[in-house]
């Protein structure tokens, strides 16, 4: 196995790790927080609008 093949496997492995991490984190957030709170944002406020 040469350097480039190793690099390809590393790319697959790291991609899978990052995707799994995001999924696991999203599921843990869903367990810890109330759904209503997670979706409670409103259109942004700015000093122009006086908020």
């Amino acid at each position: 196995m040469n350097f480039w093949q190793l690099l390809s496997y590393a790319a697959w492995g790291l991609s899978a790790l990052m995707l799994l991490w995001m999924l696991a984190d999203a599921m843990s957030v869903a367990k810890q927080y109330d759904e209503e709170y997670l979706m409670s944002s409103r259109e942004g406020a700015d000093e122009l609008t006086g908020q």
């Binding site: 390809s8 790319a11 991609s15 995001m22």
Partner: peptide, 23 residues
Amino acid sequence: GYMDLETKPFVVFTIAFLAWLNY
């Protein structure tokens, strides 16, 4: 000097890494 490199792992890695960064 390496002619047979598969592009797919790097395509997926680019998308996965940048999505992770954005997350």
